[in-house]
Amino acid sequence: MKNELLSYFGLGLHSILGGVKESFFAGVEEIRLRVGKPIIIYKNNKEYFVGADGGVYTDINLGYRPTAKEVNKTLELMCGYSLYAFGEEIKNGYITLQSGHRVGITGQVITENGAITGIKNINGLNLRVSHEVLGCSNEVIRYVCEPDLKHCMIISPPACGKTTLLRDIVRIVSDGYGGRPGQKVGVVDERSEIAGCYMGVAQNNIGQRTDVLDSCPKSIGMKMLLRSMSPRLIAVDEIGSRADIDAIDEVTNAGVKIICTVHGRDIDDLLKKPVLNGLLNKNLFELFIVLGYDKKPGKIMGVYGQDYKRAT
């Protein structure tokens, strides 16, 4: 993990972070770089500051403050010296790296006729480390697959492991759960976070019968998979737009099961989202899994049935 993450950091940051013990990198959730501000690493819901000597401290004043050049170089390395290839993603404020790590980007936003055309003078990067946790869905998989595969929605605040859980459910359904035969699964991986595709090949374990449309807009990808790959289940991450809802409608009308994730704290929060009202009013989803943070991400806070009543 250390060497992989280190390869993304340029100039002085490479040697500074290189001085951090390898064991510390296990379980790291975020590495934040801000120009002129201390480097912060988030781990187990605590923040740590990395000093110029590579030491990890809890005192903010000991944190090394990267320069604009170092931050820019780091972004260049993260993009494989090909910023142009990430242009569309940068416009959305993030890029996805190999292995599915996501990097949030802040800086001076350039707009033209109200639309974002790019970001310059980058002042901050937030590397969110993707963790593949095989078996993290063991607690809930029976609700998803028994007695038959269900339409399922995973609700979670940011950075609480919804993509990790989705990935593991996809893997188990694809490989076959509890002696059942594996199912054909289609994944529309708009942000390359589920499969973590690199040059088109999934880097994460997403099962033997899973087809991935990488970097494809969800609303288009769902329809493409439906028409071309005859999936039994389609998985998408972070739905939220009107186009996503329409595509889910089309998928479910065709008899294909859907599993998706959505940002939210709990069921009540979900019901307050106007864009999801139409979808929820149809009583389509048979299962809701709520995730939260309890010492570490991925805590199952509750599993709810079609009537929003707690199953566990």
């Binding site: 260049e76 993009c79 010296y81 090909s82 910023l83 142009y84 242009g87 940068i90 790019g118 310059k120």
Partner: peptide, 10 residues
Amino acid sequence: CLGHLDKNLQ
């Protein structure tokens, strides 16, 4: 100019 952000420039 290799690698710069602007695809048009490339």
